[in-house]
Amino acid sequence: MAGGLTYTSVDSTTLSTAEIYGKALVELGRAHPEVVALTADLAKSTKIGDFLKEFPDRFFNVGIAEQDLFGIAAGMAKAGLVPFLSTFSIFASMRAADQLHTDLCYQNINAKVIATHSGTSFGQAGSTHHAICDLAVTRSIPNLTVICPADGYETYNAVMKAYETPGPFYIRINRGFDRVLYKDADYGYEVGKAVEVHEGTDITVIACGSCVFQALEAAKFLDENEGIKVRVLDMHTIKPIDKDAILKAVMDTRRIITVEDHNIVGGLGSAVAEVVVESGKACAFKKCGIEDKFAPIGLHEDIMSMLGIDSTGIINAVREVMKKDFEEDDNWDDDM
């Protein structure tokens, strides 16, 4: 397994993604005395309590004060520490947006934001706690690497890579248990490189976060029942986006669907669309996500179903896009 990973698939099914982050942080803390953890009254919710137990002198709870959380982390990083700061995605990306922009990113400092309860994963808390704009906000801030891992293993990999890579990171993870996508962490994870989790030649579904598992389920169903060969890309890194994987999908399949637990404005779908449009190649395209409205309240899986970003919604979207005609004026022999 990669990077001294001590988890098994049992861990990944018994620990929530945030709990896996908490364990990964303890591992980093043991190996690197400059790693510190900060939160804004959400140690319990963001699962960094284990770090507090083991390293009380390197743990700082600043109270319910997100701007202060980011500023203090920036000051610490400036002095040579590597802060991991955790709060809910909605507050990390918006309550402290000015500090994220100016203190962390403008100064290009080595601090890592682990934003939990992303998308609609804090479902019943409602729109005050749903983070449906964070990808749009964060991916437009220079210097910031933006990652939305698909499951616990990928979260582990992303956290470890964030430590190894200088500069600010924004890693958005979910509140609760994510369906396990990978069998372990050893699948060659690289920041900025999409993972093809299902082969296909008819259409490509590009997803991030908890939607990747749903896309994989949809792809398996469509292959078995309708003979549609769906390529599924786990686009865990929203910025820098994997342009090569997108362009290859354009050329190989000519049909792309993006799926994200985020507003369809400004997130993964927009990032992929920018690459597709600039390629100049014809491509049927559909964005699945939250259609520029506030999401309903409910359990996360129910909300995903209502939004059409679960496997059923993705199956329907694939059927729709497979019917689209788009290629009559295009030259299939063009080079990429």
Partner: peptide, 30 residues
Amino acid sequence: TKIRGVDASTGSLGHGLPIAVGTALAARVL
């Protein structure tokens, strides 16, 4: 990142004291 000796890029107001608290706390950790 461009001018030597500047300990923090400031301009947006209300940012300096949090950063300074962080820098001071870092001395304690280090």
